[in-house]
């Protein structure tokens, strides 16, 4: 997992949750394009952060991880997306559910919330394989320690360090009930991760009584168009 900062000559503010397409063109004209969620807050002017997971045999992520150096120029298109977006003015309470690199657009929302000094109640339930796989671990702890209404819940599905106090299984109905109950049916919910996680969590939250029209999902995976 690596984060990159892109300086944008024609920067425009994004909405937290949106993505950019990055296109690479080889010397022989071969092109590859992928979508990456914006990780940074829209309040940062002139540049964005993208957090990119190295995908096995991934054309674009391999280049970004292994060959790209500071100062390289990229062809980008964005910001894109008018559905999986949250702005502080929309209020909350805000329920975020993420798996693996699906946390990236949710991080943009949390950074946006912090930068806007919004104190809408917010909770993140974040599933990772192991402690070392937790993206933005220290920053998330810092956000949770501000005492401004954001609470953080981790689950580690494969291995847990000694003394681990968080959840230690895949996200399930009981866990979602524990995390979402205080918000009631009106939680504004964003779920991002692999298809199975997204489907299961959305169904479970609907069964728990959350309003389907307030549950927004984004399936996360290797994409190519």
């Amino acid at each position: 997992m690596k984060s990159f900062t892109l300086a944008l000559p024609r920067w425009m503010p994004h909405r937290a949750g949106q993505h950019y397409d990055i296109r690479l063109t080889a010397e022989d004209g071969y092109r590859a394009q992928r979508s990456y969620s914006i990780a940074s807050a829209p309040q940062r002017e002139g540049e964005i952060d993208l957090t990119v997971e190295l995908v096995e045999n991934g054309e674009v992520s391999t280049f970004l991880h292994q060959s790209a150096v500071a100062g390289d120029r990229f062809e980008v298109r964005g910001p894109i997306g008018g559905y999986f977006v949250w702005e502080a003015a929309q209020g909350g309470p805000l329920l975020l559910v993420g798996g693996g690199s699906g946390v990236v657009p949710l991080m943009s929302m949390l950074r946006h919330r912090a930068a806007a000094k919004a104190n809408v109640p917010a909770r993140l339930l974040y599933s990772s394989r192991s402690y070392d796989d937790i993206i933005y671990r220290d920053e998330l702890e810092g956000l949770a320690a501000r005492g401004d209404g954001f609470e953080l819940f981790h689950t580690l599905t494969r291995s847990q360090p000694a003394g681990w106090k968080g959840y230690a299984r895949r996200i399930d109905d009981r866990m979602l009930g524990d995390v979402s109950r205080v918000f009631g049916a009106k939680a504004m919910t964003f779920i991002c991760g692999p298809t199975a996680l997204v489907e299961n969590a959305a169904n479970a939250l609907t069964n728990l009584g959350l309003r389907p029209e307030r549950i927004r999902t984004e399936r996360f995976g290797p994409s190519g168009t």
Binding site: S35, I80, R219, T225
Partner: peptide
């Protein structure tokens, strides 16, 4: 099914073809 995404993932392609963000 494993590789399935959602309409959000083709937002950029739709901008390229139709000139506007159609995800919403």
């Amino acid at each position: 099914w494993e590789l399935m995404l959602d309409g959000n993932a083709v937002g950029g392609l739709l901008i390229e073809i139709f000139g506007q963000d159609l995800t919403a």
